[in-house]
Design a protein around this nucleic acid. Structure first.
Lengths: 232, 232
DNA sequence: GTTGTTAGTTGCATCACACCACTAACTATA
DNA sequence: TATAGTTAGTGGTGTGATGCAACTAACAAC
């Protein structure tokens, strides 16, 4: 820390400025039980002890190469998962944002993931974690800090991406049918989509390709299986 | 500073984490001489002394209520202007981002402004400031730090907004004709627009309204003057 | 075989927009 | 006074993306 201050002192103003307490917050979303849900952790300590909050962690300048790496480390430590499709959402910060420090900044990242890939028993510092339907998380005073607002932003940004069909996202399994893909999009958007338009738009964008000969066989007519197209 | 560290120590981990050197950078754009331009300041000190860079400043947790207020203060101090339509663009940060500190974060804000409103002689710490055409700023090694990339991002985001006709922006004067508005949009987008489509789209969105009886009289046929519609 | 359900396709209406052509209003100049 | 030149403003038409609806196909269950 001494070293840090020395460096900062070299700034043109030749003053020492205290720096904000800087954290990462993660908005990890998934479709669970036909509901768009968000991953929440139960707070064990003050402030907001007992309330649910987004998982997050401190930016460690001794460990992380950059902000994205911070977010990946936090995901690994707190959730024990890799987050391949992490997107930076915003930075929020100010006085009285976090009672633990006089001034705090949070860099917020969002991602979609597959709930099935998530193993809530691993990882260090894993207090209670749960998938919470976003509708529930939007209830007043359910969440700590301003996390309700952050989730609302993340949901809006995600819906906008899905509206524009900016696949692929982390929520896609290896293989899937068009019906499954459409249902997942409908749940995330919160509204129904037209089958024929959806299919037309999907293959115009050429983001996925059929797996020749592979079909999903279930109760009714078999469906063609698809996978993500290799990025060009 | 002692106080800050004490507070941070109250964190659950009971450790002192050094925090990143946190700054604000401003990407202020305007149309100058029929060119989309960006406001740059000449660096007087190391690092990158003599090179041009985005104006910016340190986040002052003793002065600023939040990040937006930081950005406003930096704009006031370095540029002596208010920036009514400031939008947060991104946060970038990591090791070796800024030689003045081992780990630095910049919160980047962008805005459009009217060059005419800008008075480059006022303000404290005003080293040389100039409007630089973005094409010029995109030349290799012209700018300090990663500011070339930040400007490219800001231009892209701004163009996307104008594409969607998300007016009003800070670049609009009190009164303007549709022709002037279209020309400004064309310069910012870097391409021509169709007159009739532009007008139809503008009045579908109902963002501006004619000023009854007010016309711009010049060399040719008089043109209706418009102003921004009061926000609802 | 009949029914029910999902898979997958096709045709048509609609809407937003680009492209093009036109009229209107003014100045400048002959 | 007439004509040319320039910008302001409007209207028509084709096209492409999408929503809507109807259709066929393929399977399981009965």
């Amino acid at each position: 820390m001494i070293n840090v201050m020395k460096k900062i002192t070299q700034n043109s103003d030749a003053k020492i400025y205290p720096m904000p307490f800087t954290r990462i917050e993660l908005v990890v979303m998934s479709v669970v039980n036909d509901c768009l849900s968000v991953l929440l952790g139960k707070r064990e300590q003050a402030p907001y002890a007992g309330l649910w909050a987004l998982p997050g962690g401190v930016v460690r300048i001794d460990l992380d190469a950059n902000l994205e790496a911070s977010a990946q480390r936090v995901a690994q430590e707190r959730l024990a998962i890799q987050m391949p499709y992490l997107r930076q959402q915003c930075a929020v910060g100010g006085v009285s944002r976090d009672p633990r420090a006089p001034w705090a900044v949070s860099i917020v990242y969002r991602a979609l993931s597959r709930a099935e890939e998530f193993n809530p028993t691993a990882g260090k510092r894993l207090d209670a974690l749960r998938w919470c339907p976003v509708d529930e998380a939007m209830a007043d005073n359910y969440l700590a800090f301003d996390h309700q607002q952050l989730i609302a932003q993340a949901v809006a940004a995600t819906r906008s991406e899905i509206d524009r069909l900016e696949l692929p996202f982390g929520f896609l399994p290896e293989q899937f049918t068009l019906g499954e893909l459409q249902t997942a999009c409908e749940i995330m958007l919160g509204r129904r989509l037209d089958k024929s338009s959806f299919r037309r738009r999907i293959d115009e964008r050429a983001l996925i390709e059929p797996i020749e000969g592979e079909m999903r066989i279930g109760s009714f007519r078999p469906a063609q299986l698809f996978c993500q197209k290799a990025q060009t």
